[in-house]
């Protein structure tokens, strides 16, 4: 018997900043993708020891189980205020919040807006999936006109329930911000661009350049009642027109830092 000779080459593995834990996300949900991108950035920048995460209330409420970094769990919408408190007391640590659209755009509108206005030197990862995932798919401020949810059963009626809030545009309009972009997680090319943006957002914080927010268009196959691939397509066809991808604010200081 000759011994089988082979050489193992690792082509893909879990980022070390993610714990070897099964997530609580539904199959095909892009929350998991967003987690992975953040963890890859933490690994690549070598900042695991200095990073503090602030988890939201929403499907990512257990985010602290999945990242191998120090974490706090905020009240619904208050993550930017909590992050402010942490960052002001530990200015040399990396502090990021991870928030859904109910958390950030609805109940936490004041906290995010004022953290942005103060130019808090934090990184905000904002998951826009056009509904309240965790509570079972109710209408969010980001729900599209006509979109059916459990609390807009005949479709969001703008006469009664108003229009979606374009958060990247809104936050970018605040003078205190440094880096505000919108990316999407619906295909590989966009996922790569999302990762670059997350990296930039952390680099902005590293250089003390102020407030950075990356809005990520995400899928919620469970509450959209679509298969994961159909959800990707739905995002592409319906969300992109309402939430155009792009760089909404890149402060001169960020540009000249060459990041």
């Amino acid at each position: 018997m000759t011994e089988l000779q082979y050489k193992e080459t690792v082509v893909f593995e879990r980022p070390t900043a993610l714990t070897p834990t099964q997530t609580t996300y539904c199959p095909g949900c892009t929350h998991g993708v967003a987690h992975r991108l953040i963890a890859e950035v933490i690994d690549e920048m070598g900042i695991r020891d200095d990073t503090i995460g602030v988890a939201p209330v929403g499907c990512a409420v257990f985010a602290y189980r999945f990242f191998d970094v120090d974490f706090v769990e905020a009240a619904h919408g208050r993550a930017p205020a909590m992050a402010t408190g942490i960052k002001r007391s530990l200015p040399d640590r990396f502090v990021f919040t991870y928030q859904g659209d109910g958390d950030l755009v609805s109940i936490g509108m004041a906290e995010i807006t004022h953290a942005a206005a103060r130019g808090e030197n934090i990184t905000v990862i904002f998951i826009n999936n056009a509904n309240y995932g965790m509570t079972g798919g109710q209408m969010a401020p980001t729900t599209l006109p006509g979109q059916k949810t459990t609390s807009s059963p005949t479709g969001r009626d703008v006469e009664l329930a108003g229009y979606p809030i374009q958060m990247a545009e809104l936050i970018a309009s605040i003078q205190g911000t440094s880096y505000v972009v919108r990316r999407s997680l619906h295909d590989a090319r966009n996922i790569r661009q999302a990762k670059k943006a997350i990296r930039t957002a952390f680099e902005v914080q590293k250089r003390g350049l102020g407030f950075a927010m990356v809005e990520l268009l995400s899928t919620c196959p469970t509450n959209w009642h679509l298969t994961p691939p159909d959800a990707m397509n739905w995002l592409k066809e319906n969300m992109l027109p309402v939430y155009p991808l792009g760089d909404y604010k890149i402060h001169d200081a960020v540009k000249s830092a060459g990041i």
């Binding site: 706090v72 208050r78 205020a81 408190g85 942490i86």
Partner: peptide, 24 residues
């Protein structure tokens, strides 16, 4: 030392929460 005039008492207490979590 750290001082922030918060956007509301809701903001203030959650900043307090965050800061206290660092042991400050």
């Amino acid at each position: 030392r750290a001082f922030v005039q918060a956007e509301s008492e809701l903001g203030a207490i959650n900043m307090v929460y965050g800061s206290a979590c660092t042991g400050a």
